[in-house]
Write a protein that binds this DNA or RNA. Structure first.
Length: 489
RNA sequence: GGGCCCGUAGCUCAGCGGCCAGAGCAGUGGACUUUUAAUCCAUCGGUCCUCGGUUCGAAUCCGAGCGGGCCCA
């Protein structure tokens, strides 16, 4: 782009001229106050002009030059402060010609209030501490192009307060979740990302290769099987917040890498976990918003316990009139799906079809947090069966705003049952179901040594941030979402 | 998977068959010592996403592709 090229050339020339005066990229800078603190000490000193002197640093976001004086806006991590430069006090005033929007300055001076009322630094000395070579987005409209916001997030963060707010909220939410589990005596652990078998969930893994070992490895798709090994090892409460990878499409709902929380608590069951999840969401909401009741646009959301509770069978029956127990075969269920215009792939299993019915007719209706208990065994190869019902497992999922937030089981710890179900999944994979679980012999050997009864939980952290912040797209809560190649350049 | 919308200057956008593609901001030059979307004058800046087609003539119409967004089952 010739025009952009010209803008960069002009700035490169200014950089050269600055280099002749002083290094415009110094390693060390002075700073006595942030912008916010500078405003604060001025007020604390009684709002008297020139009573306090500060040195502040930050990025120039606006310039209003009037011949022999100039006002610049300086922004740092705390906020914004105005600077006043005067030719009669600054021998190097003319060097302001070398300053562009986007450059970083270090400035010293006394603080005063202008006649229009703005607290401002009367600059007595200044220097460039970073010369920028490319122009920033426009000051008034900012950066609105969604694609550019995702591909060049740094520009989005410079231009859009909301993006900064979401990023900060994410940090608060993740740290609140961590604090919640630490407070309850859970041990935070880290388990392998590179694995021999990518198990613990139904998803296609990414494959990679270890050269020295000359062996293919997979990026993990869940945290489950290693955390359970730690239960075998004797830790009673463990959790991990980690990145997992699923080799699926990219959209506003899916990113190939996302952040998962999983926790396991020995001697607890899924009802204990449900109670804990209610507390957890309430805690996180209070940390982020100061309250469990908040709204996103029209939607009033309450994360105050207790949440609504229903069952898988009951919810599907209520919203569709379908009693899935009457359709025990794949063919019968496929016919039901067809009659409701739910598209079903040719090779789809009974469980997959059932899941399609749930996601189509039930999940989108669950706006307030709602627990769905007791899933079909066929959907849940790692959960313990109900005592009185072979076909149902002790599992719940929590939904809110129409999507899944949490997934929990009374964990299957009968090694014989676990082996049978893993081998059944394995057989499905051999038949071509690429999302079926693979048998992990090492894991099976581990639980054959005895894994205590336990309640396990998984929460998609990105979804949780969406829920708390009311963001529609996953790409708004992931700083650097995966994007397709643009194909040019 | 289906439908709709968008892609024009660094940024935000207009132009929707007809002189040479425009505006604001940013940039450059000038005026201006309390401005704050500063103001005023002048000026530079384009692969109109890509490829193909229709036409005397295409940013504009048609087709395909690429990228992005929204909606639906």
């Amino acid at each position: 782009m010739p025009s952009e090229h010209e803008l960069i050339q002009q700035r490169l020339e200014k950089r050269e001229r600055l280099l002749r005066l002083a290094d415009p990229y110094p390693a060390r800078v002075q700073r006595t106050h942030t912008a916010l603190e500078a405003l604060g000490v001025f007020e604390a000193a009684g709002g008297v002009d020139n009573a306090v002197t500060v040195t502040v640093v930050g990025r120039v976001t606006a310039q209003r030059v009037m011949g022999k004086a100039a006002f610049l806006d300086l922004r740092d991590g705390s906020g914004r402060i105005q600077l006043h430069f005067r030719r009669d006090v600054l021998p190097d005033y003319d060097n302001l010609d070398l300053v562009d929007l986007g450059d970083f300055l270090e400035v010293s001076g006394s603080v005063f209030r202008t006649r229009t009322g703005e607290v401002t630094v009367a600059v007595t000395s200044w220097r460039v501490i970073t010369k920028a070579l490319r122009p920033l987005p426009e000051k008034w409209h900012g950066l609105t192009d969604t694609e550019a916001r995702y591909r060049q997030r740094y520009l989005d963060l410079i231009a859009n307060e909301r993006s900064r707010e979401v990023a900060r909220a994410r940090s608060i939410i993740v740290s609140a979740v961590r604090q919640f589990f630490l407070n309850r005596g859970f041990l935070e652990v880290e388990t392998p990302v590179l694995q021999e078998h990518a198990g613990g969930a139904a998803a296609r893994p990414f494959t990679t290769h270890h050269n020295a070992l000359d062996r293919d490895l997979f990026l993990r798709i869940s945290l489950e099987l290693h955390l359970k090994r730690l239960l075998v090892g004797g830790f009673e409460k463990v959790f991990e917040i980690g990145r997992v990878f699923r080799n699926e499409g990219v959209s506003y709902r899916h990113n190939p890498e996302f952040t998962l929380l999983e926790s396991y608590e020995a001697y607890a069951d899924y009802h204990d976990v449900a109670a804990m999840v209610e507390e957890l969401l309430g805690f996180v909401a209070v940390q982020a918003h100061g309250t469990t009741e908040f709204h996103h646009g029209e939607v009033e959301l309450s994360l105050k316990a207790p949440f609504a509770r229903t069952t898988y069978h009951g919810a599907l029956l209520e919203h569709t009139g379908i009693d899935y127990r009457q359709y025990p075969t794949t063919e019968a269920l496929r016919e039901v799906a067809r009659s409701r215009n739910v598209p079903v792939a040719d090779g789809a299993s009974w469980a997959t079809i059932l899941d399609a019915l749930m996601s189509t007719f039930v999940e989108p209706k669950l706006i307030q947090p709602t627990f769905i208990f007791d899933y079909p065994t066929a959907l849940s190869p790692l959960a313990k069966k109900k005592v009185d019902d072979e076909d149902t497992v002790e599992r719940f999922e929590l939904f809110a705003l129409g999507y899944e937030i949490a997934n929990a089981y009374s964990e299957l710890n009968d090694p014989v049952d676990q082996r049978e179900r893993m081998e059944a999944q394995s057989a499905k994979q051999t038949e071509g179901d690429e999302e079926a679980e693979v048998a992990d012999e090492d894991f099976l050997v581990a639980i054959e040594h005895g894994m205590p009864p336990a309640g396990g939980l998984g929460i998609g952290m990105d979804r949780l941030v969406q829920l708390i912040m009311g963001e529609h797209s996953l790409r708004e809560v992931i700083l650097f979402p995966t994007m397709r190649d643009r194909g040019d350049e």
